[in-house]
């Protein structure tokens, strides 16, 4: 089965449809913070990047640990390296999202 970007986005939209109001609120707040910190010339300074990296790492580890339980099972259901790699890849995705989402917030912190 071939995949398309539109198809993948459509599936993600359906997966998160119940959370759309919350997601929109977070994204709007994030964009507002981004605009503010950019205008103040303090977006993504070194300390902010470091803090967001830690936040992203925390998101990643959290996603890795709770991933199986979100599917009603434990790590005991993992039978192959594929399962670990897929969970790892999904956790990295969550970690990157965490980094990106927290960066405008951490940029508020003074140098």
């Amino acid at each position: 089965m071939a995949f398309s970007i539109v198809g993948i986005l459509a599936v993600l939209l359906e997966a998160f449809r119940p959370l759309i109001p919350l997601i929109v609120a977070v994204v709007v707040a994030d964009i507002a913070l981004l605009a503010y910190t950019v205008s103040k010339g303090q977006f993504a300074h070194a300390k902010a990047r470091r803090l967001s990296l830690w936040a992203g790492a925390a998101f990643m580890v959290g996603a890795f640990l709770v991933g199986p339980s979100l599917t009603q099972v434990t790590f005991g259901s993992f039978l192959s390296i594929t399962d670990w790699v897929m969970l790892g890849a999904m956790s990295v995705g969550v970690g990157i999202a965490g980094f990106v989402l927290t960066l405008p917030m951490t940029s508020l912190i003074k140098f």
């Binding site: 398309s4 459509a10 599936v11 979100l70 599917t71 993992f78 039978l79 192959s80 399962d83």
Partner: peptide
């Protein structure tokens, strides 16, 4: 081979894919 990954798809993702299909998007 048996994996967790297809179970994860079944449990968490395929319903969303199905709904996207109903809208003619996949």
């Amino acid at each position: 081979e048996k994996h967790w990954f297809p179970w994860m798809l079944k449990d968490r993702m395929l319903h969303a894919a199905y709904n996207a299909m109903l809208r003619g998007r996949v």
